[in-house]
Amino acid sequence: MRHLLSTRDLDRDTAVGILDVAADMADVATREVKKLPTLRGKTVVNLFFEDSTRTRVSFEVAAKRLSADVINFSAKGSSISKGESLKDTAQTLAAMGADAVVIRHGSSGAPRVLADSGWIDAGIVNAGDGTHEHPTQALLDAFTMRRRLHGNAARGKDLNGLRVTIVGDVLHSRVARSNVWLLGALGASVRIVAPATLLPMGIEEWPVEVGYDLDEAMDAGPDVVMMLRIQAERMSAAFFPTAREYSRQWGLDDERAARLPAGSIVMHPGPMNRGLEISAGAADSARSVVLEQVANGVSIRMAVLYLLLSGTGEVGA
């Protein structure tokens, strides 16, 4: 694997392979010495043009557990705020010898530009670009589902037959897009529930079933309910009348959560707007795997960095 830009590039076997490596990485977290010498001498740059806590910290922890050197570079307090272009920033990082660049950018496609431009020779990991994709989030979500579905016998398995319902702001959500492609490749069936104003153009082309009524979707008894964050910072127009109305119609409240079948799980990519798309009761219930998602995020990112940075490029036995 040279870059990780989109979950669209991943077929079933590659995706399952990443999840398997992540399972081995997860074991490291349970040991006394939580460190592997694998990426000693490699440099990973976290290039964040947008705010982030968990993704950046997660990548930082992942790189450090593999003994790579980590440089954090955020737009605030750097030359970007003086107007430096992406090209100059990339060339600067290349001159400093970065082996991998983890990039989050407000513009969809920025990681692809970095990967294809020839400005920098490093492996590029997309950590969220605009409203396009967030592949490591989708991978950690799939990893979390697979652990719940298959337990310790998960190795080599996909998500065949799993029914996943994604609820909320699909229009602005890169998490939803990455999840839809990846879950499709892994054999899960996806249903999307959202107000019509928060669905993107062309959703009929997606490999999903679309609904508008959350209660109906809950009664169908999905295995996984994934709530998306209402992204106030990306909303330039009114997509729904009031927050209270949204919450009443499309929020996962205690009553809706209680109607889910036993064994179903509730996911959220974070940060949660408690009381808006998810109630505190649902977020803290035994069904909620939000903290598991965070922990699994480190394992997935270790796996991705390992696959990107070790070896001569091609995957062997």
Partner: peptide, 16 residues
């Protein structure tokens, strides 16, 4: 993950 030839060979998938 402890091998010294990781950079010289195709990426190896680890085992449990």
């Amino acid at each position: 993950m402890y091998r010294d030839d990781l950079a010289k060979n195709p990426t190896r998938a680890p085992s449990p």
